[in-house]
Design a protein around this nucleic acid. Sequence first.
DNA 1: AGCGTTCATCGTCTATCGGCGATAGACGAT
DNA 2: ATCGTCTATCGCCGATAGACGATGAACGCT
Lengths: 108, 108
Amino acid sequence: MNAPLTEKTCGFADSQAVAAKLAALSHPARIEILRHLSASRSCCCREVVDHLDLAQSTVSQHLKILVDAGLVRYEPDRQRSRYEVDSDALEDVSRSLAALVNSCCSGR
Amino acid sequence: MNAPLTEKTCGFADSQAVAAKLAALSHPARIEILRHLSASRSCCCREVVDHLDLAQSTVSQHLKILVDAGLVRYEPDRQRSRYEVDSDALEDVSRSLAALVNSCCSGR
DNA sequence: AGCGTTCATCGTCTATCGGCGATAGACGAT
DNA sequence: ATCGTCTATCGCCGATAGACGATGAACGCT
Protein backbone atom coordinates (compact mmCIF):
# COMPACT_ATOMS: atom_id res chain seq x y z
CA MET A 1 0.00 0.00 0.00
CA ASN A 2 2.61 2.45 0.97
CA ALA A 3 5.09 1.72 -1.78
CA PRO A 4 6.62 -1.30 -3.36
CA LEU A 5 5.98 0.52 -6.57
CA THR A 6 8.84 1.90 -8.52
CA GLU A 7 11.79 0.98 -6.42
CA LYS A 8 14.44 3.61 -6.45
CA THR A 9 13.38 5.17 -9.69
CA CYS A 10 10.81 6.77 -7.49
CA GLY A 11 9.07 9.12 -9.84
CA PHE A 12 7.52 12.49 -10.08
CA ALA A 13 4.12 11.73 -8.64
CA ASP A 14 5.73 10.26 -5.57
CA SER A 15 7.47 13.53 -4.80
CA GLN A 16 4.12 15.13 -4.41
CA ALA A 17 3.01 12.64 -1.80
CA VAL A 18 6.13 13.06 0.27
CA ALA A 19 6.01 16.81 -0.09
CA ALA A 20 2.45 16.87 1.15
CA LYS A 21 3.31 14.95 4.29
CA LEU A 22 6.32 17.10 4.97
CA ALA A 23 4.27 20.23 4.43
CA ALA A 24 2.04 19.18 7.26
CA LEU A 25 5.09 18.96 9.47
CA SER A 26 6.70 22.17 8.34
CA HIS A 27 5.20 24.44 10.92
CA PRO A 28 6.54 24.96 14.44
CA ALA A 29 3.09 25.00 15.98
CA ARG A 30 2.20 21.68 14.42
CA ILE A 31 5.39 20.10 15.61
CA GLU A 32 4.68 21.37 19.07
CA ILE A 33 1.20 19.95 18.80
CA LEU A 34 2.57 16.57 17.85
CA ARG A 35 4.94 16.65 20.77
CA HIS A 36 2.19 17.57 23.14
CA LEU A 37 -0.19 15.00 21.75
CA SER A 38 2.31 12.23 22.13
CA ALA A 39 3.23 13.31 25.61
CA SER A 40 -0.37 13.36 26.70
CA ARG A 41 -1.28 10.07 25.14
CA SER A 42 -4.33 11.72 23.64
CA CYS A 43 -6.04 14.95 24.34
CA CYS A 44 -8.66 17.42 23.36
CA CYS A 45 -8.31 20.66 21.51
CA ARG A 46 -8.59 22.80 24.58
CA GLU A 47 -5.65 21.15 26.21
CA VAL A 48 -3.50 22.01 23.25
CA VAL A 49 -4.79 25.54 23.22
CA ASP A 50 -3.72 26.08 26.82
CA HIS A 51 -0.32 24.73 26.08
CA LEU A 52 0.28 26.69 22.94
CA ASP A 53 -0.68 30.32 23.30
CA LEU A 54 -2.67 30.41 20.11
CA ALA A 55 -6.33 31.08 19.52
CA GLN A 56 -8.61 28.10 19.74
CA SER A 57 -9.66 28.48 16.14
CA THR A 58 -6.06 28.51 15.01
CA VAL A 59 -5.23 25.39 16.93
CA SER A 60 -8.28 23.70 15.54
CA GLN A 61 -7.06 24.52 12.06
CA HIS A 62 -3.61 23.11 12.70
CA LEU A 63 -5.17 19.97 14.09
CA LYS A 64 -7.32 19.66 11.02
CA ILE A 65 -4.26 19.94 8.81
CA LEU A 66 -2.53 17.19 10.75
CA VAL A 67 -5.62 15.02 10.57
CA ASP A 68 -6.05 15.63 6.85
CA ALA A 69 -2.45 14.67 6.32
CA GLY A 70 -3.18 11.43 8.12
CA LEU A 71 -0.68 12.03 10.87
CA VAL A 72 -3.18 12.40 13.66
CA ARG A 73 -6.26 10.39 14.40
CA TYR A 74 -9.43 12.15 15.27
CA GLU A 75 -12.40 10.96 17.17
CA PRO A 76 -15.24 13.40 17.84
CA ASP A 77 -15.99 12.22 21.33
CA ARG A 78 -19.02 14.21 22.39
CA GLN A 79 -17.58 17.58 23.24
CA ARG A 80 -14.07 16.66 24.03
CA SER A 81 -12.79 15.52 20.71
CA ARG A 82 -9.86 13.25 21.06
CA TYR A 83 -6.80 13.70 19.00
CA GLU A 84 -3.99 11.25 19.05
CA VAL A 85 -0.82 10.73 17.13
CA ASP A 86 -0.85 8.09 14.44
CA SER A 87 2.50 6.55 15.19
CA ASP A 88 2.51 4.34 12.14
CA ALA A 89 1.85 7.21 9.80
CA LEU A 90 4.52 9.30 11.45
CA GLU A 91 7.06 6.57 11.19
CA ASP A 92 6.08 6.15 7.60
CA VAL A 93 6.87 9.76 6.84
CA SER A 94 10.15 9.44 8.60
CA ARG A 95 10.96 6.40 6.54
CA SER A 96 9.98 8.14 3.34
CA LEU A 97 12.26 11.02 4.05
CA ALA A 98 15.04 8.68 5.05
CA ALA A 99 14.61 6.82 1.78
CA LEU A 100 14.73 10.02 -0.19
CA VAL A 101 17.78 11.27 1.64
CA ASN A 102 19.42 7.93 1.31
CA SER A 103 18.88 7.80 -2.42
CA CYS A 104 20.32 11.29 -2.65
CA CYS A 105 23.39 10.37 -0.67
CA SER A 106 23.96 7.01 -2.23
CA GLY A 107 26.91 8.48 -4.03
CA ARG A 108 28.65 8.92 -0.72
CA MET B 1 22.59 11.48 19.95
CA ASN B 2 23.14 14.66 18.10
CA ALA B 3 21.24 16.63 20.66
CA PRO B 4 21.82 16.17 24.36
CA LEU B 5 20.29 19.55 24.91
CA THR B 6 17.02 19.57 26.70
CA GLU B 7 16.20 15.91 26.68
CA LYS B 8 12.58 15.29 26.02
CA THR B 9 11.43 18.72 26.99
CA CYS B 10 12.87 19.56 23.61
CA GLY B 11 11.73 23.11 23.36
CA PHE B 12 9.80 25.51 21.30
CA ALA B 13 12.68 27.12 19.50
CA ASP B 14 13.90 23.79 18.30
CA SER B 15 10.61 23.10 16.57
CA GLN B 16 11.15 26.16 14.50
CA ALA B 17 14.48 24.95 13.22
CA VAL B 18 13.14 21.57 12.22
CA ALA B 19 10.08 23.13 10.65
CA ALA B 20 12.22 25.43 8.55
CA LYS B 21 14.22 22.56 7.14
CA LEU B 22 11.15 20.53 6.42
CA ALA B 23 9.51 23.51 4.76
CA ALA B 24 12.34 23.59 2.27
CA LEU B 25 11.59 19.98 1.45
CA SER B 26 7.86 20.33 1.30
CA HIS B 27 7.54 21.07 -2.38
CA PRO B 28 7.47 18.49 -5.15
CA ALA B 29 9.66 20.55 -7.43
CA ARG B 30 12.33 20.90 -4.80
CA ILE B 31 12.33 17.21 -4.09
CA GLU B 32 12.69 16.55 -7.78
CA ILE B 33 15.54 19.01 -7.86
CA LEU B 34 17.27 17.22 -5.05
CA ARG B 35 16.87 13.93 -6.83
CA HIS B 36 18.25 15.32 -10.01
CA LEU B 37 21.12 17.05 -8.29
CA SER B 38 22.16 13.90 -6.55
CA ALA B 39 21.86 11.86 -9.69
CA SER B 40 24.00 14.26 -11.64
CA ARG B 41 26.62 14.61 -9.01
CA SER B 42 26.43 18.34 -9.42
CA CYS B 43 24.94 20.53 -12.05
CA CYS B 44 24.03 23.97 -13.18
CA CYS B 45 20.68 25.69 -13.12
CA ARG B 46 20.01 25.19 -16.79
CA GLU B 47 20.32 21.46 -16.51
CA VAL B 48 17.65 21.42 -13.87
CA VAL B 49 15.44 23.69 -15.92
CA ASP B 50 15.54 21.31 -18.87
CA HIS B 51 14.67 18.43 -16.65
CA LEU B 52 11.86 20.11 -14.85
CA ASP B 53 9.50 21.94 -17.15
CA LEU B 54 9.50 25.10 -15.13
CA ALA B 55 10.68 28.58 -16.00
CA GLN B 56 14.30 29.30 -15.35
CA SER B 57 13.44 32.00 -12.85
CA THR B 58 11.26 29.63 -10.93
CA VAL B 59 13.93 26.98 -10.77
CA SER B 60 16.44 29.55 -9.65
CA GLN B 61 14.10 30.48 -6.84
CA HIS B 62 13.68 26.91 -5.70
CA LEU B 63 17.41 26.44 -5.77
CA LYS B 64 17.85 29.53 -3.68
CA ILE B 65 15.41 28.21 -1.13
CA LEU B 66 17.31 24.96 -0.92
CA VAL B 67 20.59 26.80 -0.59
CA ASP B 68 19.23 29.14 2.08
CA ALA B 69 17.99 26.14 3.99
CA GLY B 70 21.50 24.76 3.87
CA LEU B 71 20.53 21.62 2.02
CA VAL B 72 22.34 22.44 -1.18
CA ARG B 73 25.79 23.87 -1.65
CA TYR B 74 26.25 26.63 -4.12
CA GLU B 75 29.32 27.72 -5.96
CA PRO B 76 29.01 30.56 -8.46
CA ASP B 77 31.37 29.13 -11.01
CA ARG B 78 31.64 31.78 -13.68
CA GLN B 79 28.47 31.33 -15.64
CA ARG B 80 27.63 27.77 -14.89
CA SER B 81 26.93 27.93 -11.23
CA ARG B 82 27.33 24.60 -9.61
CA TYR B 83 24.74 23.26 -7.25
CA GLU B 84 25.30 20.11 -5.32
CA VAL B 85 23.49 18.30 -2.58
CA ASP B 86 24.84 18.70 0.93
CA SER B 87 24.57 15.11 2.01
CA ASP B 88 25.45 15.79 5.59
CA ALA B 89 22.80 18.42 5.95
CA LEU B 90 20.24 16.21 4.34
CA GLU B 91 21.04 13.34 6.60
CA ASP B 92 20.84 15.69 9.49
CA VAL B 93 17.32 16.67 8.61
CA SER B 94 16.38 13.06 8.26
CA ARG B 95 17.82 12.35 11.66
CA SER B 96 16.01 15.28 13.19
CA LEU B 97 12.71 14.08 11.87
CA ALA B 98 13.46 10.57 12.98
CA ALA B 99 14.24 11.84 16.44
CA LEU B 100 11.03 13.79 16.57
CA VAL B 101 8.99 10.88 15.35
CA ASN B 102 10.75 8.58 17.71
CA SER B 103 10.04 10.77 20.69
CA CYS B 104 6.43 10.91 19.61
CA CYS B 105 6.17 7.16 19.33
CA SER B 106 8.10 6.32 22.45
CA GLY B 107 4.88 5.34 24.08
CA ARG B 108 4.55 2.49 21.68
C1' DA C 1 -34.46 25.82 31.77
C1' DG C 2 -30.40 27.93 31.83
C1' DC C 3 -25.39 28.49 32.14
C1' DG C 4 -20.66 27.41 31.09
C1' DT C 5 -17.53 24.75 28.30
C1' DT C 6 -15.76 22.82 24.24
C1' DC C 7 -15.19 22.66 19.52
C1' DA C 8 -15.73 23.27 14.36
C1' DT C 9 -16.67 26.44 10.98
C1' DC C 10 -17.09 30.90 8.67
C1' DG C 11 -15.48 35.29 7.25
C1' DT C 12 -11.78 38.49 7.19
C1' DC C 13 -7.21 40.24 6.98
C1' DT C 14 -2.30 40.06 6.02
C1' DA C 15 1.85 37.87 4.58
C1' DT C 16 3.97 34.57 2.04
C1' DC C 17 4.36 31.16 -1.72
C1' DG C 18 4.78 29.82 -6.37
C1' DG C 19 4.65 30.93 -10.83
C1' DC C 20 5.95 33.82 -14.81
C1' DG C 21 8.19 37.31 -18.01
C1' DA C 22 11.56 40.83 -18.38
C1' DT C 23 15.88 42.51 -17.38
C1' DA C 24 20.80 43.08 -16.41
C1' DG C 25 25.31 41.16 -15.46
C1' DA C 26 28.95 37.97 -16.66
C1' DC C 27 31.08 34.99 -19.90
C1' DG C 28 32.58 32.35 -24.12
C1' DA C 29 32.80 32.33 -28.78
C1' DT C 30 32.90 34.42 -33.13
C1' DA D 1 32.87 44.48 -30.62
C1' DT D 2 29.02 41.88 -30.88
C1' DC D 3 26.11 38.00 -30.22
C1' DG D 4 24.27 34.13 -27.72
C1' DT D 5 24.01 31.72 -23.36
C1' DC D 6 23.47 31.20 -18.52
C1' DT D 7 22.15 33.22 -14.01
C1' DA D 8 20.21 35.91 -10.58
C1' DT D 9 17.08 39.25 -9.45
C1' DC D 10 13.03 42.26 -9.89
C1' DG D 11 8.20 43.16 -10.35
C1' DC D 12 3.85 41.38 -10.75
C1' DC D 13 0.02 38.28 -10.16
C1' DG D 14 -3.20 34.74 -8.20
C1' DA D 15 -3.62 31.49 -4.70
C1' DT D 16 -2.80 29.82 -0.35
C1' DA D 17 -1.34 29.83 4.57
C1' DG D 18 -1.84 31.46 9.07
C1' DA D 19 -3.80 34.13 12.35
C1' DC D 20 -7.88 36.02 14.61
C1' DG D 21 -12.77 36.91 16.37
C1' DA D 22 -17.51 35.69 16.12
C1' DT D 23 -20.89 32.35 15.83
C1' DG D 24 -23.65 28.28 16.61
C1' DA D 25 -24.12 23.51 17.77
C1' DA D 26 -23.53 19.90 21.23
C1' DC D 27 -23.01 18.71 25.71
C1' DG D 28 -22.55 18.53 31.10
C1' DC D 29 -24.04 20.38 35.11
C1' DT D 30 -26.89 22.61 38.32
